[in-house]
Amino acid sequence: MTALASHAAAPTGARSRLRRLADSERFLAWALLAPAVVFIVALVGFPFVLALLYSVTNVTVGTQSASFVGLAKFRQAMESPAFWGAVRNTFLFTLVSQALVIVLAGTLARLLMMEFRGKWFVRLLILLPWVAPISLGSIGWLWIFDSIYSVINWTLRHIGIFGPETWPIWLGQPTLAMASIITVHVWRMLPLAAIIMLAGFSGIPKDIHDAAAIDGAGFWRRELQIILPLVLPIVLVAVLFGIVFTATDMIVIFIITRGGPFDSTQVLASLAYYTGIDGGDLAEGAAISLFLFPLLVAIAYLMLRLARRTEVT
């Protein structure tokens, strides 16, 4: 007892200092944030600054020294039709897949809110694409779309939807190829969006649903006039994430189509890789990859503002 008391009365110097530090909110905040800050600076900030620097020089993969060339690399990139094709494809890819993601994620989130047996298992399955490495999933899709062994074609033929002469080449025709990469991307983005929207839907108090039911709102009125406006801020966040992820993604395209057939699925991110790394012109690759940056910043700003404005208590 005496030992305990003396201990409590006079803690050792180092320990008390530590305890004082742990109690200091300012110190603690910084200590806890530091790993994240280091992570972001090292893996996001540094490469971004590097890309900015590269884009205004004539650096190649084979040179360490480079001279300042201003915006020449941007001009160079913009002179090529392949670049404008990639801009168009990026927009198409992003907008269509995001539209699908939002509609499907909304539906999925609603389904997940229902109570049914084995719900945890379904939730797990739905989360799987997000958790699994994207390259693994994409390789799976590569086989699904394979020109010889396509699982889709095989199945549709065996259940009699395709005749013996029908055998679409999913990755060989520009429209189908675009549809294919959009499919893969939707598959990939859906879990995150669904979970975000699930959070949004769960955040609507039960009373509001009840009130709408009592007030006589039918399905569409409830969806469009009550639920949609209430989840809008969070949906906007999901869309924003989706747009940024989609517009800057190259893994799906790199693995599935490599931009083909004939550049019809080439997006800015993949074009930047082919130009910068495989083609060796790091500077132009950097310029291409930065092209969307101002636009994405603008979109992010607008969406966050909108989300704030529609925020409700």
Partner: peptide
């Protein structure tokens, strides 16, 4: 040929001829 060649990666032609296609 058929449009499948537009979708190929570097190993597709191996698979094609080995599959008898």
């Amino acid at each position: 040929m058929t449009p499948e060649v537009l979708a190929w990666d570097a190993s597709s032609n191996n698979r094609m001829i080995l599959a008898g296609k």
